[in-house]
Design a protein around this nucleic acid. Sequence first.
DNA 1: CGACTAGTTGAGGCCAGTCAATGTTGGTGG
DNA 2: CCACCAACATTGACTGGCCTCAACTAGTCG
Lengths: 258, 258
Amino acid sequence: MATRPAPWSEDEQLAAPAPLHVASLRDRPIQCASCGSRELCMPVGLDAEAMDNLDRVISNRVRVQKRATLYRPGESFRALYAIRIGTLKTLILAEDGREQITGFHMSGEVVGLDGMAGGSYTCQAIALEDTEICVLPFKRLDELALGVPALRGNLYRVLSSDICHDHSMMLLLGSRSAEERLVFFLLNLAARYQRRGYSSSEFVLRMTREEIASYLGLKLETVSRLFSHLQEQGLLQVQGRAIKLLDSPALKQRVGQH
Amino acid sequence: MATRPAPWSEDEQLAAPAPLHVASLRDRPIQCASCGSRELCMPVGLDAEAMDNLDRVISNRVRVQKRATLYRPGESFRALYAIRIGTLKTLILAEDGREQITGFHMSGEVVGLDGMAGGSYTCQAIALEDTEICVLPFKRLDELALGVPALRGNLYRVLSSDICHDHSMMLLLGSRSAEERLVFFLLNLAARYQRRGYSSSEFVLRMTREEIASYLGLKLETVSRLFSHLQEQGLLQVQGRAIKLLDSPALKQRVGQH
DNA sequence: CGACTAGTTGAGGCCAGTCAATGTTGGTGG
DNA sequence: CCACCAACATTGACTGGCCTCAACTAGTCG
């Protein structure tokens, strides 16, 4: 019944050894069942057996150093990557050199989805801090998912959530003012930290002003000015990358949330 | 091995009868194998048997009248929709009433992917002209895909392509000037018409200036002025919605393509 | 024919970008 | 440990691209 093979069906072994800044953690036994991100990640809702099988699918866990690249455009698609600990940015490059950050990703999130379409990644993923990654070879993940509806659902969910995120970014970039963009960004970060058990009102940014600006379609000076402006109004406290949201309700109101 | 059921696993029957402006074409026998869009759509690369099975998955083909809604935010996710003939726009609505068009979709393209994540659609899909749609009940599509790797690949491809499209829109909205945005838009339309066997230099827009503007994060006056401006420069000819690209190479150069 | 929608064009204003100077922070090596 | 340097961040002055508001035209439909 099947016809031509799927593009990722080649062996998932890496052709070349990983570069030094992406070190394997193969020796360390880490399991989904004991991972702090399991409630946000691929194993959500899997029973013990399925989770065991997922552990076996994960070919490798790697550490990506700050500023190092996990994958880059053109590299052939073999795997999805789940973030265990740390933060990544993904970005696309235009022919003329302009670049746009398409997302900041934290623990439990899955990146590399852009590679499933054309056989190779279209984005570049770069660590914003030392980051630990679970490598999910796609061929094996796909095969396991055949027998595990919940895993299949999670795969679909991850893909579709990414689409929804991107849609809301299009709304942000297409119709919102600079201030609204920054406030949305901060509230979104806060919510994501909260889901991970951290404070939703106090956190340290992992990215530079320039990276925030790129993500929000602004210039770094504008982001800097907005931080100062919001601080003057008593809505938040900024000290370099340390952010304290002093009045979340007012911030939410400012962007028409609730 | 499976645990909780996937959210779309309820019966795919519609609870209520379809509204009048979305009429069923159940009686008309249409098959993927004879569909003009098959090379761009879900059946790409399927063998005859798989294509037959896909035909059986398609519960229904419907006609959506111009300006009618195919699905709307909050409506529970049951199916993906493949466009057989016609054009749709998808848009998201902000709480404050602002809206952003997230895509224009033509024959062979699949919409509704945003609904897979949360159990209900987050976008609204509206026909820009009378449009014929193949309804792909997701539960059945998913089941068929278990046995058909090529179909599974197509499903992944459609999802991932959407993500890539959205990324390029984020680059467009975040880093490009109004003129670049419009030129990109026109060149993209041209390429898509060409793939469907139509002229890539002469076509009729299905959308208003305001819809183009929304998609590109601009105002309709700006779009109108840009059309006039590009026409003055001899790059294209505009007569209402009829567009003729007079110098595609120059247009491509203007946005740094090749 | 009038009402309505879609599109064009002009005048003026403002938000965010650009350019530039200065301050701050953190990593590195002496 | 501390000095140094480069990367990061802040702030100001000015500019300009796109938005806003408004008038007008063209086409459509009852």
